[in-house]
Design a protein around this nucleic acid. Structure first.
Lengths: 248, 248
DNA sequence: TATTATTGTATCATATTGTTACAATAGTAA
DNA sequence: TTACTATTGTAACAATATGATACAATAATA
């Protein structure tokens, strides 16, 4: 969650948003997966002058669809455009309500909110996840954040509120959806080797796969086309590059 | 969605709820599946003196967990207790906002709400589904409803707001989850024949299954135990009864 | 006792998956 | 040039799963 940016008519100096512009009590948090050097990564923000790490999140405007809000929030907070986001769970336990981090964030911005300030109230948060090409998705922190960057999923820092649990739930959903949807390809570059793809699957599932069967399975699905060979400089046979063909 | 019942200190006559007791803008709608005579059924309410048909739904108290609210709402509106509900989607499009049905419901109760009444504002609704034993789940309408009963999923009446779309999404989720979870058994009685179970699967999936392979598959999973034979009076071999064994 | 409808399971064919093996490289080093 | 190494693509076989058919074993009924 975040202090949302205002729409254009307001200046940055008035960055304290009016609660009346947003659906009260409803938030969106996004878990953005990337893949690099055989590791799953997620995007985290660091709230300015607080050391608080959080998922990119925000609030839903009165005038926008929920799913559109998720895309806007991701774009505003990380700079990532046109990312397909998928709902995976709604987090609505009372135990997730903890006004302390939000108060710290507001105080770091020079605000001293009353106890009944709308940003300190209970929020139900809709979780979304997305898969992006690590090499192309260059995150840009918004004005609320000291940084916005990739963190190894296997070694996350402590996160604000219940965000660690949100990440775990997103990963579980990703694992369950891996076979049914053509998820993996969004995490790789335009072209990739079969070893790249297998490594991705193994990393998501957390278990090794048989190389021969994996290749046979993927090729049998008819969802990749073979391109030229990749001469990478290694002392071994050069692997083919593949490309995902979506229209099948 | 509904006008929620108040907690005990208030009398039925004061049934107009105070918005301040609930999370504003957030609703829960439930799709309760049953199975009877080879047909999938769902529970629908009919709002009193309006003819409006709706899913059992309601609002989330400030003091309860979201998932607990779903169970409470189902119990209050239909009388069904201790039902395991599962989230399946959040409906948050602007197009679903239509104050007309809610105004009609309130007027039928003798209220004349202002245009800015909280119940007439936009709501984001969390969809939950559940599977219940048709023979044991006897729905009881609440005081808001003329009736609460089972309707054939294949021939639903027109529903309020976007509830038809909510039902469709719930069914799609049920179909997708059928193999991964042991869903079907909640829809049958304690004991059932293999033909009962196969019919259920065929109805949910909307396609016929091969009898031999189905039996082999289910028995191979080790999730049912065979009981005595069922002498049903038909002029044919008596089928065995089976029971679901959850601890496997 | 024959007939009928249904059930449980065997059987075979086919498809899928698990596993091993091996030829084909692309570099490196002798 | 010629081994040598690591990796890749795929064949080959086994094991398992699935699709389809067949058939014996009933419970009632006529």
């Amino acid at each position: 969650m975040s202090l949302p940016r205002m729409s254009k008519p307001l200046k940055v100096e008035e960055a304290e948003p009016k609660g009346v512009d947003f659906l009260p009590g409803l938030a969106v948090d996004t878990v953005i997966f990337g893949f690099h050097l055989n590791q799953l990564k997620i995007l985290l923000l660091e709230y300015r002058n607080t050391g608080l790490m959080a998922l990119p999140g925000g609030f839903v405007r009165n005038t926008e669809n929920l799913n559109d809000a998720a895309r806007r929030i991701l774009a505003e907070r990380t700079g990532l455009q046109d990312i397909y986001l998928e709902q995976f769970y709604v987090f609505g336990d009372l135990t997730r309500h903890d006004p302390a981090p939000m108060r710290a964030i507001m105080q770091a911005k020079g605000h001293m909110p009353d106890d009944d300030h709308w940003l300190l109230s209970r929020f139900v948060s809709v979780g979304y996840y997305a898969l992006v090409d690590f090499t192309k998705a260059i995150p840009i922190p918004d004005e609320l954040s000291d940084s916005c960057g990739w963190y190894d999923l296997a070694a996350l820092p402590p996160l604000m509120q219940d965000h660690t649990a949100i990440v775990q739930k997103a990963l579980a959903t990703l694992q369950a959806d891996l076979d049914r949807k053509l998820i993996g390809f969004n995490l790789l570059s335009e072209t990739f080797t079969m070893a790249d793809l297998q490594s991705l699957y193994e990393t998501i599932l957390g278990q090794p796969l048989h190389r021969s069967g994996f290749q046979r399975k993927i090729l049998g699905l008819g969802i990749v086309e073979r391109l030229e060979k990749q001469y990478s400089g290694g002392a071994h046979k050069a692997p083919y590059l593949y490309r995902f063909v979506p229209n099948k």
